[in-house]
Design a protein around this nucleic acid. Structure first.
Lengths: 352, 352
DNA sequence: TTGAAAGCGCTAACAG
DNA sequence: CTGTTAGCGCTTTCAA
């Protein structure tokens, strides 16, 4: 067994299998079995049109018989492509994000792409680590769903690599994105509250750098302004998108004596928390306070009362993002941003 | 510019950059700049101990100056490893699953692994597609969170490839898994209901092939049996884990006149749906029906009343799964299954 | 402690 | 339509 000598620092069983060549069929083997050259086998495998049908058949038969599986590692090195796209998110653990990812994955699959997933927790160190995957050529592109990077940094990266922004985006960056019109959506939701005769409309946002946060606040402002309503700072509060944060924040606001007659929250979960806080104080929804949320996630129809909310389609968004990415990867130069439609869904938290 | 001739079938800008060698630094370049051989550079990059500190310094300086990034494609081909693990799930869009994935990703990152994600919708065709990534060497291993494959098939795959099961598992398959004790957890939840003096305990499950479904039902059965309670088939119903299915199923059960005094649901979402159905009929929770759920997801404390539930830790589970996988990948032979602890969390849906 | 050289499996340019 | 051949960038053996 001296022919193993070269490989005696073997670390595990799989190495054995591999090194001995026992179970691994290469394109060479197929070529030999089919009586053609490796080039021809490669052509067949890649659906090159210039192969005689008869030859195709011969090759495919050899492939079948040997149980040949192309080794993508060789292919990747040779083509300098991995057919893999990274999705970078702040956190995967919320319904909307995970649905978008799911849709990205499905769209990718249809085009032969795999999806790598990385969470950044909005930590720049982690983000950089993830961008390295691009620099190391482990992925062909990145779909960014949130980043702490500046427009300048994003731009620089976008020049050299394939980047697409999804849902969140950095304004001013010359990198294509897909999003809803957050400003308009918020404007419509708040206008709906105003149309019900509400005048003291509270805003429950999140203090972060996300574009959606800013735009939704702008929409809120705009709706108030156009209705000739004064903005009352004591009615503006922040949470962290979550139920508990709103429960706390809202209890606080209500016990301060600054009583709103409506609330717009930039997440359903916060809307649910706020409703709970109000109910605990004997405040009636929607009679005393009309509440609107954002995202149309499960919680918006599970909550009591069901919550009026802005619906954005995660599946549409994910699909669009992947399609944008594939356009970029195939070298299309001028790529337009995509604005996905949204819809205000009216439920009992604003109208009985 | 005739030296481009060879590459005139260029498809996009990135190809230009690459082919012209403009922006891509290789290990060769570093070697030249540092005045050493590629082998030495490689050693430095891989922290080989047998390099003079002085040489290390020289090389690292060249790396810095040139902004060199190792190309993982070359490395992957050479080492026949990708440092990537696939997580295969039925669907990513539920809180528990996405939290497990998040934890897998984090644990992987700490060990230098990336995580690829694929959804199967319990469709065998898709599953096979995903397993191909393993056969094509695009990933080093698969963490399976649900599969329709038989123990025999799983076994066969597990012999040749690195597979770990997480949360769900195929009993009888000789492939390591991490899970909670689903039978015991269900047993404890139902016993809790019984200890409250409840006698007509309904069961809300899901008709599928998942091990957890079977085991939880066994736990329910066992608790009834040990308490000397007869099982009433009219109190056993199925949903699809979701809120709406339970809303429907439970309304049906209640209007059939087969009134339970307690309910054990194998998901929080179904528990919430059932509670809603009961409340709509004027039935009081927990006075008339005590309800227990499973998973300790957000909905269990957002629902009114808050739901007694079995808590299993997605982070612990994901971490354990990744650790199991890394053990396998590093060739450890005898790998034990891991049973992660669970806990019954008692809330107002069973005790006021 | 280092360098030379082989070659992982594949694609694609070029020649026939 | 098919074969020959040259690498893609890297790790690792072997020799020095």
């Amino acid at each position: 067994m001296h022919f193993w000598k070269k490989y005696d620092n073997i670390k595990n069983v799989n190495d054995y299998i591999f090194k001995l060549g026992g179970g691994v069929i290469t394109i060479q083997d197929v070529a030999k079995a089919a009586g053609v050259s490796v080039a021809t086998v490669s052509r067949v495998l890649n659906n090159s049109p210039s192969v005689r049908p008869k030859t195709v058949e011969k090759v495919m038969q050899a492939v079948e018989e040997l149980g040949y599986r192309p080794n993508f590692l060789g292919r990747n090195l040779r083509t300098n492509r991995t057919k893999t796209v990274l999705v970078m998110v702040s956190t995967i653990s919320n319904t909307f994000t995970s649905r978008v990812i799911s849709s990205i994955e499905k769209a990718g699959r249809d085009m032969g792409y795999s999806v790598l997933i990385c969470t950044s927790n909005d930590d720049e160190r982690l983000e950089n680590l993830h961008f390295n995957l691009l620099k190391n050529r482990q992925v062909d592109g990145i779909i960014v769903m949130s980043t702490v990077k500046s427009a300048k940094d994003i731009n620089a990266l976008g020049k050299e690599y394939n980047i697409v922004q999804c849902s969140e985006y950095t304004p001013g960056a010359n990198v294509p994105y897909v999003t809803i019109d957050n400003r308009l959506a918020a404007y419509e939701a708040v206008s709906h509250l105003i149309s019900l005769g509400r005048r003291r409309i509270a805003y429950l946002g999140v203090k972060n750098h996300f574009t959606s946060s800013h735009l939704r606040f702008h929409g809120y402002e705009q709706a108030l302004r156009e209705a000739g309503l004064e903005m009352d700072k004591s009615l503006i509060a922040d949470g962290d998108y979550g139920y508990r944060s709103a429960l706390y924040t809202m209890s606080h606001m209500l016990s301060q004596g600054s009583m709103p007659d409506a609330l717009f929250s930039i997440s359903d979960r916060m809307a649910a928390g706020a409703i709970r806080a109000a109910k605990d104080k004997g405040i009636k929804i929607p009679e005393d306070i009309a509440v609107a949320g954002f995202d149309n996630t499960d919680i918006s129809y599970i909550s009591e009362p069901q919550i009026t909310t802005v619906s954005q389609s995660p599946s549409q968004m994910g699909k669009a993002a992947m399609e944008l990415m594939i356009k970029r990867l195939s070298g299309e130069g001028d790529i337009d941003n995509i604005i996905v439609p949204h819809k205000l869904i009216i439920r009992q938290s604003t109208i009985l």
